[in-house]
Design a protein around this nucleic acid. Sequence first.
DNA 1: ATATCCACCTGGCGGC
DNA 2: TGCCGCCAGGTGGATA
Length: 271
Amino acid sequence: MPELPEVEVSRLGIAPALEGNLIERVIVRQPMLRWPVAAEVIALQQQPVQAVRRRAKYLLIDVPQGSIIVHLGMSGHLKIVPSSTPPLKHDHVDWVLADGRSLRLNDSRRFGAVLWQDPLQSHVLLTALGPEPLTDDFDGALLFERCQSRSSAIKLVLMDNHVVVGVGNIYANEALFKARIRPTTPARQLSLAQCTVLAAVVKQTLAAAITQGGTTLKDFSDASGKAGYFKQELLVYGRGGQPCLHCHTPLDEIRLGQRSTVFCPQCQPTP
DNA sequence: ATATCCACCTGGCGGC
DNA sequence: TGCCGCCAGGTGGATA
């Protein structure tokens, strides 16, 4: 999926078209995503959009009756298109706007979701989430504290939504390389100083990726259909076996929690 | 609580 | 050209 930067790039792209606009109706071509598209969303008519927010990798589109929750899964992307545009394969949901355009969700793997949140409530999927990485709620001290009870590899802990949200496989690999920490290091073995560096590079990496329009591996694009440029700045992800950009040692690639994990055996030493 | 593994689904790639 | 296995940006849920 889109990780946090790609979701934020989507939010930035769709918000200007949605906010202050009216959702006239919703067209569902394929209701079976990760869960069935929520009935409350399908029934929406003539609803003004008040705001488009993001929490972790969830987008929240606020209307007077509540909030539409959109998750992009692994392959989802959102576009703003003229409503007359013929739907393509995997264009599962359209939100038809009053100005002749539509918000269109395409998701080939259907790991994404379209859910509903009642006003003044938090959907159950959003209640147990950890802090947002790009706010002051997340810092080295918090990361260090949450690592104390964890013997798992730091990469798995960094990707655990209870610890911090939004860090997926690409950016976990990138941040650990920048922090010079081996992904397999048991989390509780990290020092406060290492956690402070790690939290800082997580913020820096995510923020830079947002600026670059996100990372497009194959099917991510922003609301206008443009691919992201951050792929050019990836230091280790997808580069297993190739030389480290710092020391030229071939990068190691292993599996951690069934996810591809790349690191430099020289620059990211075992503790 | 924590840790591990599986599931969902489509598509692209390499190998034979 | 075709078939097969493997891999891919996520994460809830079942199981020890």
